[in-house]
Simulated scan of single mutants.
Amino acid sequence: MLTANTEEAARAHLAALLHSPLGVYVAQTAFARGAMRVLLDIAPEDIDFTMHTLIGSVPEAAIGALRPRTGNKGA
């Protein structure tokens, strides 16, 4: 979650994230209740890199649950 006082500020945080190396991992975004929700689709081996880069790129971000990918594997 990218929290901010205004939608404009949340969008500025999102822009910073999209222009960081993590931009390629962004799978979905939604603004609700004063925060920008961002879903990152990352491989398990990229979790360490992703967390360190996220904290460095957008320190205002709150990290939520990590869940395995769903859907067809190999289809």
Results as ranks from 00 to 15, higher is better:
Thr6Ile: 03
Val26Met: 04
Gly71Tyr: 04
Tyr25His: 13
Ile63Arg: 10
Thr50Asp: 02
Ala62Tyr: 10
Arg69Leu: 12
Val38Met: 10
Ser57Arg: 08
Asp48Cys: 11
Asp41Met: 14
Ala16Gly: 07
Leu39Met: 09
Pro68Ser: 15
Gly23His: 01
Glu7Met: 05
Asn5Cys: 08
Met36Pro: 01
Gly64Pro: 06
Ala9Asn: 04
Glu8Met: 06
Ala75His: 00
Ser20Asn: 01
Val58Thr: 06
His19Glu: 12
Ala75Glu: 08
Leu40Asn: 13
Leu39Glu: 13
Gly74Pro: 09
Met36Ala: 04
Asp46Pro: 07
Val58Ala: 00
Glu45His: 14
Ala62Val: 15
Val38Gln: 13
Pro44Ile: 09
His13Cys: 00
Arg69Gln: 12
Thr53Pro: 14
Met36Asp: 00
Gly64Met: 00
Arg33Glu: 07
Ala15Leu: 05
Arg11Cys: 03
Leu2Asn: 00
Met1Leu: 05
Gly64Trp: 05
Val24Asn: 07
Glu60Phe: 02
Ala10Thr: 00
Met51Thr: 13
Phe31Trp: 07
Ser20Gly: 11
Arg11Asp: 00
Gly64Glu: 00
His19Leu: 08
Pro68Met: 08
Thr29Glu: 01
Arg11Trp: 08
Tyr25Thr: 05
Met36Thr: 11
Glu45Lys: 09
Ala9Trp: 01
Ala62Glu: 15
Leu54Cys: 11
Ile55Gly: 01
Met1Ile: 05
Val38Tyr: 05
Pro68His: 15
Glu8Leu: 00
Ala35Gly: 06
His52Leu: 15
Ser57His: 00
Asn72Lys: 03
Gly34Tyr: 09
Ala16Gln: 11
His52Met: 14
Phe31Asn: 04
Ala12His: 01
Ile55Val: 14
Val38Glu: 03
Asn72Ser: 14
Gly56Ser: 15
Pro59Leu: 02
Ala61Arg: 11
Val58Cys: 04
Gly71Asn: 06
Ala35Trp: 03
Leu66Gln: 13
Gly56Val: 08
Ile47Leu: 15
Leu66Met: 12
